[in-house]
């Protein structure tokens, strides 16, 4: 799962992993979040196993699913961890690197990104998670919308009840409803596009 500092990548990877721990899996998350709030790329490597703890880094070319909270991050991750059976779920809202803002670097068009991702993955889905999150009043909820959408890909046993229990442990009651709503929106976005 990758994104940009400030998007709640670390939090989303923990929620997702806790849902899987509830299903009885051994989960390892590897992440670097020293740069997490400072515009850098953030990536969480989530390993899910029935038997034992794997290393906190996915070996090159071995990701099964890529969840990108920001579109160009999907490309960045696939170049290192992609393979012919990888599935990709990506948010369509770009966050421009400072090099792009200053004009030194180019950011590809969404069309180019989608074409790339389609060609190098077995299946891919693009959703405007940030746009939907803004309708809910807070763009950071895009990360939860992505988890809701991921639950529809049916690669992982993610269900609403586990989500509800996991966020119930970490969020105050007032915020839980909004997060459940975000989860449901994500889930419905994918069921209509599947």
């Amino acid at each position: 799962m990758g994104g940009v500092g400030g998007q709640g990548n670390v939090m989303a990877s923990r929620v997702l992993s806790n849902m899987l721990v509830r299903k009885g899996f051994q989960v390892t998350i590897g992440e670097t979040f020293g740069a997490s709030q400072r515009g850098g790329s953030v990536m969480s490597h989530i390993r899910v196993s029935t038997r034992s703890a794997w290393s906190p880094q996915i070996p090159k070319g071995r990701a099964d699913i890529v969840v990108a909270l920001e579109p160009i991050e999907a490309v960045r991750i696939l170049r290192n961890y992609g393979n012919s059976h990888v599935k990709v779920l990506a948010n369509t809202r770009p966050i421009y690197p400072v090099g792009v803002i200053s004009g030194e670097l180019d950011y590809p068009s969404l069309g180019e990104i989608e074409e790339f991702v389609n060609r190098v993955s077995l299946a891919s889905w693009f959703i405007d998670a940030t746009g939907e999150a803004m309708k809910l009043g807070n763009p950071v909820l895009a990360n939860i919308i992505m988890i809701g959408a991921l639950s529809r890909i049916e690669e992982l046993p993610l269900d609403r009840e586990d989500f509800s229990v996991v966020i119930g442990r970490s969020l105050p009651a007032g915020k839980q409803d909004l997060n459940l709503k975000a989860f449901d929106i994500g889930s419905s976005l994918l069921s209509s596009s599947c």
Binding site: G39, I72, V75, P97, L105, P108, E115, F116, R119
Partner: peptide, 15 residues
């Protein structure tokens, strides 16, 4: 062979 030849680096920056 795909079209995107360069992925723009994300330099660290102040928030």
């Amino acid at each position: 062979v795909t079209t995107i030849s360069q992925v723009p680096e994300r330099a660290r920056t102040f928030c």
